[in-house]
């Protein structure tokens, strides 16, 4: 087997890190991935069928012969202080897709739970997932234009019954600076969990 050419090797050997963005349907995951991705956000649709049950675990979806899980994907290259590629995965965060989550969570920096205050309960499966696997996470409250549903971060913390050390941040999933701010909070949180 031959090795890649030096220039290819260089870019392929960039450090790869990943952050997961989870939340209920319509919470703004695709928007958030797209806000900071240098490529247009890609979506893969996995169709899980009964025929594939031996490979695609369908535990917990008894009686369902086919289901679709979508996965958003984006990436961002950082050059300083080290050349690295940040992979962003947007996932629906439903328990029944645990097998895919486990693969995603492997070696992940951490997770962002994107909460929509109109449907806050949709965030619970993602919270459970990160808590169970001890993945550091922050809750980002996506501020939609609808002012009637704006709640302060503390109210969201109470409603979700979050531990005191989990950061809660307001964000605008469309705005790159706002999203990057959330990621910075996440990385700081992941770092503080180490010490």
């Amino acid at each position: 087997m031959t090795s890649p050419s030096p220039e290819l090797e260089h870019s392929a050997r960039r450090l790869a890190l990943k952050i997961l963005i989870a939340g209920g349907f319509g919470a703004g995951k695709t928007t958030m991935v797209g806000a900071i991705s240098e490529i247009p956000p890609l979506t893969t649709e996995e169709r899980l069928t009964a025929a594939g049950a031996h490979v695609d675990s369908l535990a917990g979806v008894d009686g369902k012969t086919t289901t679709t899980v979508t996965l958003d994907f984006g990436r961002r290259t950082l050059t300083k202080p080290l050349p690295m590629t940040l992979f962003l995965f947007g996932t629906p965060g439903q328990n029944r897709f645990d097998f895919m989550w486990d693969e995603l969570a492997h070696n992940a920096v951490g997770g962002v739970v994107l909460a929509d205050t109109r449907r806050l309960a949709d965030a619970f499966p993602a919270l459970d997932f990160f808590e169970q696997r001890d993945v550091p996470f922050v809750v980002a409250v996506n501020q939609f234009d609808n002012a009637a549903h704006r709640y302060p971060a503390e109210a969201v913390r109470q409603a979700l019954d979050l531990p005191a050390d989990v950061p809660v941040a307001d964000c605008d999933a469309r705005d790159a600076r706002s999203v990057i701010n959330v990621l910075i909070i996440l990385v700081r949180h992941a770092l503080s969990a180490r010490t």
Binding site: L15, L17, P81, L86, L183
Partner: peptide, 13 residues
């Protein structure tokens, strides 16, 4: 993680 943090802070998004 520290390197990533610095990278995010330095990056002009």
């Amino acid at each position: 993680l520290q390197a990533l943090l610095e990278g995010l802070e330095a990056h002009d998004f």
